[in-house]
């Protein structure tokens, strides 16, 4: 029963995505399906996309991670400071060291979230609200609110380069999505995440260490924020506290639009990727039409409500038919 409904959600999502695509092509004849626009979309999607994957994995366990943007900024600032400090050394070595340091910081913040949720027992939304505020604060203290900018070419390649005409960040996103799909579908941890999300007590009594699963979940979420940070600092060519704050609620929106249940237990990478593409089609299409980006925000909100209402109605009709 439940599985059928979830499949249906993806059908609705596919239909919406196709409708948006057709609409945008019709509204922007000759300018939407150009290499330039498609590449533009492919450059913009990955930042939000990788962050959304980091949000989705936590939502599957029934939690939420409000600290993803703060984590990304801390990781980005760490990497940027290291890049600045190593300006004399070979660019490649500096990049590797900076990327590793950024990912380590992100992983540590993820680990802290995991400990607060799993061992101290704080509700995820509050634990991550606390770490979000804390690390936003630390980012401001460390940078004194200033921007760290100007990186070497190898760093800029991460967010702006192309490999055989394919934007490099898109390749990173595809890789991130693939790894997430493998974790969720093939690994034991992934299976346990779904279990934990749909019924924590049952998971516990079937011999799963919920605490360990939660720690892994928040660790992975942290690492994805760190990966997004590398793309972000490269695309902005700078790092600063407060970058990308508006992404936070959009990642929740994109996850839910992609069929991730905010109560946990459900959600697929494919759905989330489709949701992200839909949102990107909308914002790029409206951008070509010179519609204000705030109008796009309003329409995202409207679509969100519409999808939830349609889901509810389908859900209800099915149930009615069965009884």
């Amino acid at each position: 029963m439940t599985i059928k409904i979830k499949k249906n959600e993806l059908t609705v999502l596919t239909a919406i995505m196709a409708a948006v695509l057709v609409l945008m092509v019709l509204l922007n004849p000759g300018s939407f399906l150009t290499i330039g626009n498609l590449q533009g979309m492919a450059f913009q999607l990955p930042e939000l996309g990788i962050l959304t994957l980091g949000m989705m994995v936590v939502m599957i366990t029934g939690g939420i991670n409000l600290s993803i943007i703060a984590t990304a900024n801390m990781a980005g600032i760490t990497a940027a400071m290291l890049l600045k400090g190593m300006e004399g050394s070979p660019a490649g070595a500096a990049l590797l060291a900076a990327a590793a340091a950024g990912l380590v910081v992100a992983a540590l913040i993820g680990l802290l979230n995991g400990v607060l949720v799993a061992y101290i027992g704080i509700t995820p939304i509050l634990a991550t609200l606390g770490t979000m505020t804390l690390f936003n604060g630390i980012a401001i203290v460390v940078t004194k609110g200033y921007v760290i900018s100007g990186f070497s070419d190898p760093v800029l390649f991460i967010g702006n380069g192309t490999l055989l005409a394919v934007p490099f960040p898109l390749i990173l996103f595809a890789l991130a999505a693939f790894i997430m799909a493998v974790i969720l579908k093939k690994s034991r941890t992934g299976f346990n995440m779904y279990m934990l999300g749909s019924n924590a007590v049952a998971a516990k009594f079937s011999g799963v260490s919920n605490a360990k699963v939660l720690i892994m979940t928040y660790l992975i979420s942290g690492l994805y924020s760190g990966a997004a940070a590398l793309v972000m600092i490269s695309r902005f060519n700078s790092a600063k506290s407060g970058y990308g704050n508006s992404y936070l609620l959009v990642t929740i929106l994109a996850s839910v639009l992609g069929g991730v249940s905010s109560e946990g237990g459900f959600g697929k990478v494919s759905g989330v990727v489709m949701a992200l593409i839909t949102l990107q089609l909308l914002s790029s299409g409206f951008n070509l039409l010179r519609v204000s980006s705030f109008m796009t925000t309003a329409i995202w909100g409207f679509i969100m409500i519409a999808v939830m209402v349609i889901d509810y109605l389908i859900d209800n009709r099915k149930k009615g038919g069965r009884q």
């Binding site: 939420i64 609620l249 929740i252 905010s262 109008m295 309003a298 995202w300 969100m304 939830m308 509810y312």
Partner: peptide, 22 residues
């Protein structure tokens, strides 16, 4: 429509705020 409160209000926040600025 049994939409979880956090989702509903994030959506309406985007809707209300976007329209306000427009």
């Amino acid at each position: 429509f049994s939409i979880p409160p956090i989702i509903t209000t994030i959506a309406t926040m985007n809707l209300y705020y976007g329209l306000l600025i427009v």
